[in-house]
């Protein structure tokens, strides 16, 4: 059996990678991908913890996370396409019409 600490470390690393990507990437698509990585890191903990505690709540949460990820991608993709068609660019730093 894999020790839970390792799972924690792995998902922590995934989460951190995602977070770092979210903060450092300027391209919207990459930001969305980073978010997915974060979510998957979290999902890993749920599955491992579910196994550890022997109840299915965690796996249920995993499904929900999956759903969330799907919805986010769907909405995000739609927006990204729209923005790309308007600006021909996905650089988030260029989204600066709203500054005050």
């Amino acid at each position: 059996m894999i020790e839970i600490t390792w799972v924690l470390v792995l998902s922590g690393v995934l989460f951190a990678i995602g977070l770092f990507g979210l903060l450092s990437r300027r391209n919207l698509l990459f930001m969305l991908i980073s978010l997915e990585i974060m979510l998957n890191g979290v999902a890993l903990i749920f599955v491992a913890a579910s196994n550890l505690h022997g109840n299915v709540d965690g796996q249920l949460m995993y499904l929900f996370i999956l759903t969330l990820a799907a919805c986010e991608v769907a909405v995000g993709l739609a927006l990204v396409i729209h923005i790309y068609r308007q600006q021909q660019d996905l650089d988030v730093d260029k989204l600066t019409k709203l500054k005050g």
Binding site: I4, L8, S11, F15, G18, L19, L22, L28, M31, L32, L35, M38, L39, G41, V42, I45, F46, A48, A49, L52, H53, D57, G58, M61, I65, L68, E72, G76, V92
Partner: peptide
């Protein structure tokens, strides 16, 4: 981006508490 990031953070918290 904000709300998805927030969700990820909240999920992480939930996951840790669940663990």
């Amino acid at each position: 981006v904000l709300s998805a990031g927030a969700s990820a953070l909240i999920l992480m918290g939930i996951a840790l508490i669940y663990l």
